[in-house]
Design a protein around this nucleic acid. Structure first.
Lengths: 303, 303
DNA sequence: TATTAAATTGAAATTTTATTTCATAAGTGG
DNA sequence: CCACTTATGAAATAAAATTTCAATTTAATA
């Protein structure tokens, strides 16, 4: 498990380093940003060693030259910690957990976004545009994705129904008008409920879009259009579906934003109007609720 | 609106560059990765100019030296395009949309994660551990967050109820046992429903945690413990709450993972067992559903 | 503990790379 | 077409990186 990150690389062979190499390692670990701005001799002076040791340190950690070390550090400065879906182990520091979570999420989003080609996206937008309204369905964590899609599109006046009750949904689909779109969300692409609904929709000649993870799966094959998110590796099992969710959310965002841009002005107007309406409602209910709240009002000073 | 990115910087003053500087600019724009590995004279040769021109080019785009240019390029290589919550405008290319979405999401997550201090996190974990069970509530897009929290914790056997019906939730809270935890999610921190529920919980001496955006707000003030996500700027209005959701999700993940690590082994066992159960259920229902699916089976060959 | 071999280290020499200087060439406006 | 500005690269210089090597420390062995 060799990470390319200088930080981890240094940590992992720290014990094998010589005394003066360790002095240099300290600085590299603790103040990488400063090291980036130093010359080899400056770093030598700062660590109370010699330029020769600095060069030796670079070689020791597997980096061919000092300028290369600086380039590496610079590359990592703002880049998320991406190490092929690392799982999180029990002896991790809070800092490490944070970095890994961020890195995993970033990687999942990035790869997912790269996976979607513009053509597919355009087709998806067309199906959405053509639909009088949309049904979305997902179960478990995919339900969150479905609900998110529905919320976003409803906000711009594109009617989108996320009905978690399969029976009711079947009834709706059965009597849905032409061009109605069904979006099925299933990470595995094998969830029987979603497959069944997709079949039903197809039998009624409705359009269908699937959102699944990457790779061959029944739902992708059977839907008119298949959108796929990155497939995350073993780490998935442990990290409780975290990165697949993130991936599906960024895909939703991409879909939504691309759609909004198709008809920029009118959609923007819708978003604004819906915001305003919500704000108005909030003001009204705040008044109403104040009575209710009075009853349970707690001391403002916290314990 | 000056971006620090070399790419944009070069583009913006491209017209003011001299003939040979432009040749160099081409290479920097088109093959930054290769440039990173070159020396000044190599870049000169590759662009059919001279080292002197390379240096002049660096100065022209406002970078003091050639090694600095390489460092900059390296820093930007893997870093997401982060430009303070840029909004997405109608004339954007698909590529730009993707980069901005990714950049915004990444920045929101990163800043949120940095915002949470370990102490608060530890306290939150303690409240969760101590609770016999948990109620979560959120409305609108915050409902997604609440539901996500519930799903994650339930998966490891920590009973967590996300009840969207306020009336039913009030009933439950009213008769909840000691140490029961109420988690209220509201991006603004001013949603009246959530405030009312927090009041109720407090009046019953239950513990409460709030999840809101950063800054002073009623909910944060009134909850026992306040978790905050980064507050995104104006772009928010247009991008339909995208980055605040992302931020809340990463916060959930952080909370969840930290909690799981507290009792690593037993929690891990729970996750595995719950996965297995779901898999078993899936196998069973697949059989059942096959009959239903037969009825609507469509041609496997897509149009 | 004394002795020797191996490893570590930094000063100085060397090499590589970056930068500046300056003479020449290419434009530009009159 | 001339004077003058700007642009350019060859060569000189400066700066940085790297290697060499002798001195020194450390470890191993008798």
């Amino acid at each position: 498990m060799k990470s390319k990150h200088v930080h981890y690389r240094v940590k992992s062979i720290y014990d094998d380093l010589t005394r003066s190499e360790r002095k240099i390692a300290q600085l590299v670990l603790n103040e990488p940003e400063k090291v980036i701005k130093m010359t080899a001799s400056e770093l030598a002076k700062a660590s109370d060693t010699s330029p020769a040791s600095v060069i030796r340190f670079c070689k020791s950690i597997g980096i061919p030259s000092f300028p290369d070390l600086k380039l590496q550090l610079s590359a990592e400065k703002d880049a998320p910690v991406v190490q092929q879906y690392t799982d999180i182990s029990p002896d991790e520091s809070p800092e490490d957990i944070k970095n890994k979570l961020l890195g995993n999420a970033y990687q999942a989003m990035k790869e997912t976004i790269q996976l979607v080609d513009d053509e597919t996206l355009t087709s998806a937008i067309q199906l959405i545009s053509a639909a009088p309204f949309i049904y979305v369905y997902g179960i478990g964590s995919s339900y969150l994705v479905a609900e998110n899609i529905a919320q976003k599109f409803n906000r711009i006046g594109k009617v989108c129904i996320c009905q978690p009750d399969v029976h009711l949904l079947i009834a709706s689909l059965t009597s849905a008008p032409e061009r109605t779109l069904f979006i099925g969300v299933s990470n595995s692409g094998e969830t029987s409920e979603v497959l069944a609904l997709n079949d039903l929709a197809k039998s009624r000649h409705l359009h269908t879009i699937s959102i699944t993870q990457f790779g061959a799966n029944s739902l992708s094959k059977q839907a008119d259009l298949s959108l796929q998110t990155v497939k995350s590796k073993e780490a998935e099992l442990r990290s409780a579906a975290t990165s697949s969710l993130t991936a599906q959310f960024i895909l939703t965002d991409l879909l939504f934003h691309t759609y909004v841009l198709k008809n920029y002005d009118e959609n923007m107007a819708s978003i604004r109007t819906s915001r305003e309406s919500v704000d108005q409602y909030k003001q009204q209910t705040t008044k109403k609720n104040s009575k209710f709240r009075q009853k349970y009002k707690t001391n403002k000073n916290k314990a």
